[in-house]
Measured scan of single mutants.
Amino acid sequence: LVRYRTISKIPQITLNFVDLKGDPFLASPTSDREIIAPKIKERTHNVTEKVTQVLSLGADVLPEYKLQAPRIHRWTILHYSPFKAVWDWLILLLVIYTAVFTPYSAAFLLKETEEGPPATECGYACQPLAVVDLIVDIMFIVDILINFRTTYVNANEEVVSHPGRIAVHYFKGWFLIDMVAAIPFDLLIFGSGSEELIGLLKTARLLRLVRVARKLDRYSEYGAAVLFLLMCTFALIAHWLACIWYAIGNMEQPHMDSRIGWLHNLGDQIGKPYNSSGLGGPSIKDKYVTALYFTFSSLTSVGFGNVSPNTNSEKIFSICVMLIGSLMYASIFGNVSAIIQRLYSGTARYHTQMLRVREFIRFHQIPNPLRQRLEEYFQHAWSYTNGIDMNAVLKGFPECLQADICLHLNRSLLQHCKPFRGATKGCLRALAMKFKTTHAPPGDTLVHAGDLLTALYFISRGSIEILRGDVVVAILGKNDIFGEPLNLYARPGKSNGDVRALTYCDLHKIHR
């Protein structure tokens, strides 16, 4: 019993810090008490220290592992850092350059016999395009090294910054494609005289377009951006097909006994025919423009016929181009109408809503002055909100995010209106959640004399007048207030005048 009563005193000691020596009952000389009392004092002292730490809000209350900052290894790049964003855009520009100039170089340097010394005699450094290609190869190699040090988000939505895990993730992902696209074939085969082989191998750079397509997928929600990307894709495919079309004609031209190829026909049409040795002929500019003209006309199913396939190889390629053109029509131009419709969806919704308003007016036989006010209010409210119901949009977000959005939407009023000066951010967040926005066209009466005042109004834009009878008592403008002081009276009061809008007004109100 003594032991039980001794232990039962522990909660009292913990909360009230009572010393055991003052209790005459606990001072009985028993061996059990002498053993338990020192333990009680020690526990009391420890609990006292913990309570003191909690009340003082000291940093040592938290466990040590929670006080440590997340460790980022040296030379690790955050995937959302500004440097990584700028670097990704730079790589994107280099990939676009590669997609345009690599097929052009591979096709127009394929057994090209233009006048001038061969590239091997001039030297590697004197070729501007080769120098640019070398810079692109170096940048792609540097990009691989950067990807080995860039964080990523795993399946659990955690940012991984450990170098080993980053390397394994990159090896399992895009490393092989990036490595093949970054191989400097110019340096590996330079001086061997195989410019045709170098041009063909350099087309491996186009593998990076797969990554670019995935990154550009984030802009699919913007109709104008999608339309622009589709047109660029169409032009890029036409450019690639033009390079292939020229390569076919250029390879067949020296081996044909009869002059029936499209390059021969082009030379005869523009007065620059090929001679018996295969030299001469149109310039590279004429060849490229004509090839691009043929691919565009074939892809769009126009086909004027002034550039036509004559050999079997050219006919087979033309059939493939027609098939590609039909697929592009289905996948690209078939979506253009939907994209344009999405661009004008706001206008369509406006006309639909206006039609419903006019049908309501016609069905209920609203008189002319009231009908005009109804239409003007709808037009003004639509121009202010673009038909978007803010309350319906915010309803799907958590309250903390709703408060931040409301604070942002009402920031101008909260910053410049005098009653809100000096208020804490928590108070402003709470008030912003209570605001209701209303609009009024010129001549609209917001409050009639004798109406119950259940709200306090803040003028965000425009001006109003307060009338008693036919006498203008006051004219209020931006950041002015009218209405009933909230919670100042037990019952809502009545208006002693009319409140009429002089201009288009936007008002925020808080109800009782």
Score class of each variant (00 low, 15 high):
residue 65 Y to H: 07
residue 66 K to R: 11
residue 69 A to N: 13
residue 69 A to M: 04
residue 72 I to V: 12
residue 72 I to N: 03
residue 73 H to W: 04
residue 74 R to S: 14
residue 75 W to V: 04
residue 75 W to H: 04
residue 81 S to F: 01
residue 86 V to R: 01
residue 86 V to G: 05
residue 87 W to R: 01
residue 91 I to V: 14
residue 91 I to H: 01
residue 92 L to C: 05
residue 98 T to W: 01
residue 99 A to L: 01
residue 99 A to I: 01
residue 99 A to G: 04
residue 100 V to I: 10
residue 100 V to Q: 01
residue 100 V to H: 01
residue 102 T to A: 07
residue 103 P to W: 01
residue 103 P to M: 01
residue 105 S to E: 04
residue 105 S to R: 10
residue 107 A to Q: 01
residue 113 T to S: 07
residue 113 T to M: 03
residue 118 P to F: 04
residue 121 E to C: 05
residue 122 C to K: 01
residue 127 Q to A: 02
residue 127 Q to F: 11
residue 131 V to A: 06
residue 131 V to M: 05
residue 132 V to I: 05
residue 133 D to Q: 15
residue 135 I to H: 01
residue 135 I to G: 03
residue 142 V to F: 09
residue 144 I to V: 11
residue 145 L to G: 05
residue 154 N to S: 14
residue 158 E to T: 10
residue 158 E to M: 09
residue 164 G to F: 14
residue 165 R to T: 08
residue 171 F to S: 04
residue 185 F to I: 06
residue 185 F to A: 04
residue 189 I to R: 14
residue 189 I to Q: 11
residue 190 F to W: 13
residue 192 S to Y: 07
residue 193 G to S: 10
residue 194 S to F: 15
residue 194 S to V: 15
residue 195 E to Q: 15
residue 197 L to M: 04
residue 197 L to T: 05
residue 197 L to V: 08
residue 198 I to Q: 03
residue 200 L to Y: 05
residue 202 K to H: 03
residue 206 L to D: 01
residue 209 L to R: 01
residue 212 V to R: 03
residue 213 A to T: 13
residue 216 L to G: 04
residue 218 R to V: 05
residue 220 S to C: 13
residue 221 E to Q: 13
residue 222 Y to Q: 06
residue 224 A to E: 09
residue 235 A to Q: 01
residue 236 L to E: 01
residue 240 W to F: 03
residue 243 C to R: 01
residue 246 Y to R: 01
residue 248 I to W: 01
residue 250 N to V: 14
residue 261 G to S: 04
residue 262 W to P: 01
residue 264 H to P: 01
residue 267 G to T: 04
residue 267 G to A: 14
residue 268 D to F: 09
residue 268 D to L: 14
residue 274 Y to N: 01
residue 274 Y to V: 03
residue 275 N to A: 01
residue 276 S to G: 06
residue 287 K to H: 01
residue 292 L to C: 01
residue 292 L to S: 01
residue 297 S to W: 01
residue 302 V to M: 03
residue 303 G to T: 03
residue 305 G to C: 11
residue 307 V to G: 01
residue 311 T to R: 01
residue 313 S to Y: 06
residue 314 E to Y: 01
residue 328 M to A: 04
residue 335 N to K: 12
residue 337 S to Q: 08
residue 337 S to D: 01
residue 338 A to H: 15
residue 339 I to F: 03
residue 340 I to F: 08
residue 341 Q to W: 06
residue 343 L to C: 09
residue 344 Y to N: 08
residue 349 R to C: 08
residue 350 Y to P: 01
residue 350 Y to T: 01
residue 351 H to G: 03
residue 352 T to F: 11
residue 352 T to Y: 13
residue 352 T to S: 10
residue 353 Q to N: 03
residue 362 R to F: 01
residue 365 Q to S: 09
residue 369 P to N: 07
residue 377 Y to A: 10
residue 378 F to E: 07
residue 381 A to H: 15
residue 382 W to A: 04
residue 385 T to P: 04
residue 386 N to G: 12
residue 388 I to S: 03
residue 394 L to P: 02
residue 398 P to E: 01
residue 400 C to V: 06
residue 402 Q to G: 02
residue 408 H to C: 03
residue 409 L to R: 03
residue 409 L to W: 03
residue 409 L to S: 03
residue 410 N to Q: 12
residue 417 C to R: 06
residue 419 P to V: 13
residue 419 P to Q: 04
residue 420 F to K: 01
residue 420 F to V: 02
residue 430 A to F: 09
residue 433 M to Y: 03
residue 436 K to N: 10
residue 444 D to P: 01
residue 447 V to F: 04
